[in-house]
């Protein structure tokens, strides 16, 4: 981590996607949102999305705020920067149930996780790491060159995406 100062940094906003061919430090803050990191072990490049809700309902703009859109778009984007599908691996973070009601309709965190896992299975991309669920928010920092992801867990109730 000695070159931490030299690397480009990008803060990933909720509902957006980031993947660049150059090494980047991609960070984001997660509450009930889920972030999926895709990384190519051989090409050593990758990207991240930030899912707020599981499904696009066909109304509003079809932004990557919705899981089904965000997963497709992230995959397309990492492939477009030169990653190869067969050497991609995935990590999943977030999906805390921060509202604490326990009612299924409100458990957006769980639904986001399920959606992300199902879509990765459909893409046949192995999930090699995850830190999901729970009650507290997270901050994650991904190094797109090494594929290392740092996770910070909040003590307070998460307010992030």
């Amino acid at each position: 981590m000695g070159n931490e100062e030299l690397i480009n940094k990008h803060f990933l906003y909720p509902g957006t996607i980031f993947a660049e061919p150059h090494p980047y430090q991609i960070s984001t803050v997660l509450g009930s949102c889920v972030a999926v990191c895709l990384w190519d072990q051989l090409v050593r490049r990758g990207g991240m999305n930030h899912i707020m809700l599981p499904f696009w309902n066909g109304e509003g703009l079809a932004t990557p705020k919705y899981g089904n859109i965000a997963m497709e778009k992230l995959l397309a984007k990492v492939l477009s920067i030169g990653c190869r599908r067969e050497s991609l691996v995935a990590k999943i973070f977030g999906g805390a149930n921060v509202s604490g009601t326990g009612l299924e309709v409100f458990m957006i965190g769980d639904r986001n996780i399920t959606l992300a896992m199902e879509m990765l299975e459909e893409f046949r991309i192995p999930v090699i790491g995850k830190d999901v669920g729970g009650r507290v928010g997270r901050k994650i920092i991904m190094n797109s060159e090494t594929g290392v992801v740092l996770v910070g867990k909040g003590k307070r109730e998460a307010s992030g995406g």
């Binding site: 803050v29 990384w39 790491g129 901050k139 090494t146 290392v148 992801v149 740092l150 910070g152 003590k155």
Partner: peptide, 19 residues
């Protein structure tokens, strides 16, 4: 970004290159 890392404990999750 700054305040959150102070509140939380940042740890190395794992290394993808070793997987």
């Amino acid at each position: 970004e700054e305040s959150f890392s102070e509140a939380g404990n940042l740890f190395l999750f794992d290394d993808m290159s070793e997987a």
